[in-house]
């Protein structure tokens, strides 16, 4: 990318990685092709420090207040929130389905854990997504190597700890290659 990477301001607390916020919204019921998915996703902005993160986040709508079929994505700078990105194509994600009312708190806890490097899995984390839907909301965290079971187990255990979820919450791991196969059956 030709774009200049953001840097922490004077006296600010640097993050281990720079991140970019994205937003997407689509008409429900219609499976998005890769192209229209890329057209629907908008960059909000990038940050390099804790303070810069709060400047974005404090002005963003809470996921629980979004309507319709919307997603916030927070990915490391340079990684597109798409299965096809080089950082994601061998990867997968942990998915947690949430009943309505929990998304804002869970999303905040999830991204604070990611920005603060709480997962302890080296370079493996790619980003996180909150998806607002009609019946339920979904949060997910994406990592680079779906086949690395030690990493995916560690991510799962950290999620349980930082999200403080009810014990009966179901967590599901999905590889992106499976997600691509599934969408191809819907949108040939």
């Amino acid at each position: 990318s030709k774009k200049k990477m953001v840097v922490p301001g004077a006296g600010e607390h640097p993050l281990q990685y720079n991140y970019t916020f994205w937003y997407s919204r689509r008409t429900p019921g219609r499976p998005a092709s890769t192209q229209s998915y890329e057209q629907n996703i908008k960059q909000i902005g990038s940050f390099a420090s804790v303070e810069q993160f709060w400047r974005f986040y404090s002005h963003m709508i809470r996921p629980g207040d979004l309507t319709g079929h919307s997603d916030f994505h927070l990915f490391k700078e340079g990684i597109k929130p798409m299965w096809e990105d080089d950082a994601n194509k061998m990867g997968g994600k942990w998915i947690i389905r949430l009943r309505k009312g929990l998304a804002s708190r869970c999303w905040e806890n999830l991204i604070l854990a990611m920005l603060g490097e709480q997962f302890m899995v080296g370079e493996e984390i790619c980003g996180a997504v909150v998806s607002v839907r009609f019946q339920e909301d979904i949060i997910s965290i994406w990592n680079k190597t779906a086949s690395d079971q030690a990493t995916t187990a560690r991510i799962r255990d950290t999620l349980r700890r930082v999200l403080n979820l009810p014990p009966n919450t179901i967590m599901e791991y999905k590889t992106h290659t499976d997600s691509i196969k599934y969408w191809r059956t819907l949108a040939p």
């Binding site: 607390h13 993050l15 490097e117």
Partner: peptide, 21 residues
């Protein structure tokens, strides 16, 4: 190398610090 690790409480504390405004 060293990793920059912050817990939730620290990050929340930076939200209201003067430098964040």
């Amino acid at each position: 190398g060293t990793r920059i690790i912050y817990d939730r409480k620290f990050l929340l504390g930076c939200r209201s610090s003067p430098v964040a405004k």
